[in-house]
Design a protein around this nucleic acid. Sequence first.
DNA 1: CTCTATATGTTAGAAAATCTAACATGAATT
DNA 2: AATTCATGTTAGATTTTCTAACATATAGAG
Lengths: 99, 99
Amino acid sequence: MSYKHKKVISIGTVNELTGLSLRQIRYYEERGLIYPERTKRGTRKYSFSDVETLLQIADKREEGVQTYEIRKDLQKTKKGKVMERMLRGQLNAHFKMNK
Amino acid sequence: MSYKHKKVISIGTVNELTGLSLRQIRYYEERGLIYPERTKRGTRKYSFSDVETLLQIADKREEGVQTYEIRKDLQKTKKGKVMERMLRGQLNAHFKMNK
DNA sequence: CTCTATATGTTAGAAAATCTAACATGAATT
DNA sequence: AATTCATGTTAGATTTTCTAACATATAGAG
């Protein structure tokens, strides 16, 4: 897994990187917008990718968008990326475009 | 700065990623092999790059190489990279090879 | 207009993580 | 034999994180 997606950052650092309060960061998790991992003892670990997502969330929130809407958007984007990947996979399988 | 060099990982996580003990990780800092940053309150933050360096250190140590030697090697490598960059810069300045 | 949900702040107490400093020790060097 | 290197371990203090609860302003539903 890439540096971007490895879950290694603790919540205090995420707070510094995003400017969001601990409360907000945990709340967005509760609303299903991000999914940190937990260590055996229960402390949350985030990836740089999570940090990016949180920055997007902060923007949306400033525009007044509710977490429910933001969550749908995020899932749509994620689904979009999966689709892209599937398509690429199909294309590769059929036409061997790589290498 | 890239994800690779941003100092965001705390020592416990570095321990998990490298298998080195906290003692070892701090000791290698004391010997000048790595340079974590500190938060205002004093807790150490490492980058993925530091983690990679620590893995190299672990290998060298298993071969019996002492920290003093390892440090010299690391500095040589770093100097090597700076030289590369300088050379590339010179070349670019003279021949405008980029873009 | 009242009721409810949303989004956040704040507080409290417990548990986990980190810090420094010191002492201990086996192995390697001098 | 004495010293340095590399690491373990311990202790106490400080910092960070966790959950849960209560408070509240705003917005949306009826």
